[in-house]
Amino acid sequence: MKKHPAYGTIWRLGIKELWSLWRDPVMLVLILFSFTVSVYTAATAVPETLHHVSIAIVDEDHSPLSQRITAAFYPPQFITPAMISHEQVDPGMDIGRYAFVLNIPPDFQRDMLAGRPTEIQINVDATRMSQAFTGNGNIQQIIQGEIADFMRGRSQTASPSAGLALRARFNPALEKSWFGGLMEIINQITMLSLILTGAALIREREHGTIEHLLVMPVTPTQIMLSKVWSMSLVVLAAAALSLNGVVRGLLGVPIEGSLPLFFAGAALHLFAMTAMGIWLATLARNMPQFGMLMILILLPMEMLSGGTTPRESMPLLARDLMLAAPTTHFVELGQAILYRGAGLDVVWPSFLALLIIGSLMFHLSLRRFRSTIGSMA
Rank of each mutant, 00 (worst) to 15 (best):
I84N: 05
A336Q: 10
P300A: 07
L317N: 02
L201P: 01
L317W: 10
M112R: 13
A199E: 06
R97V: 11
G252L: 07
A132H: 05
I139G: 02
V124M: 07
I356N: 01
M376E: 08
K227S: 00
W22G: 11
S313C: 05
L182P: 00
I295F: 14
G163D: 05
S161V: 13
L13F: 04
I143G: 03
H269E: 00
Q131V: 10
L316K: 13
S242L: 08
S350F: 03
V235M: 03
I10H: 03
A272I: 07
G252A: 08
A267Y: 01
F133K: 15
P91C: 08
V29I: 15
H212Q: 09
L28A: 14
I143H: 05
M191G: 06
L166Q: 08
A132I: 06
G153N: 09
I186D: 04
R167T: 13
P47D: 07
A42I: 02
I143V: 15
P310F: 11
H4G: 01
G135F: 06
R340T: 10
L316F: 10
A239C: 03
S365H: 10
A114T: 01
G257T: 10
D94F: 10
D320C: 12
G180E: 04
D320V: 14
R116D: 05
V37S: 10
A264G: 11
M376P: 01
M129V: 13
A199D: 06
Q188A: 12
I143P: 02
A82P: 01
F362K: 01
G198R: 07
W178M: 14
A267W: 04
E119D: 10
S130K: 12
P160K: 12
F263T: 11
L166P: 00
L21D: 01
I142V: 15
D125G: 11
E48L: 13
S371I: 02
L50D: 05
T49K: 15
D90P: 00
R12H: 10
D345Q: 13
A173Y: 07
F362W: 08
T197P: 00
S365N: 11
P217D: 00
E206W: 03
Q156S: 13
A82S: 14
L233K: 02
R367L: 11
F108E: 03
G145Y: 06
Y339V: 04
P75L: 07
F179T: 08
F170Q: 13
V89P: 06
D107K: 14
S38R: 11
P47R: 14
T41A: 10
F330D: 00
L214I: 10
W178D: 12
H329A: 06
T127M: 09
M151V: 05
A237M: 12
P254Y: 08
L65R: 08
A148C: 01
E48I: 13
G181T: 09
F100E: 01
R152F: 03
A275F: 02
S85Q: 14
L338Y: 04
M294D: 01
Y339H: 09
A6N: 09
A42L: 01
D345I: 05
T49R: 15
L364N: 04
A239P: 01
T70C: 09
G153I: 04
G334V: 06
A324V: 07
Q140L: 12
R205D: 00
S313M: 15
D345P: 01
F100I: 04
A377W: 02
I143T: 06
G245I: 10
N136Q: 15
L182K: 14
I104N: 06
G374D: 09
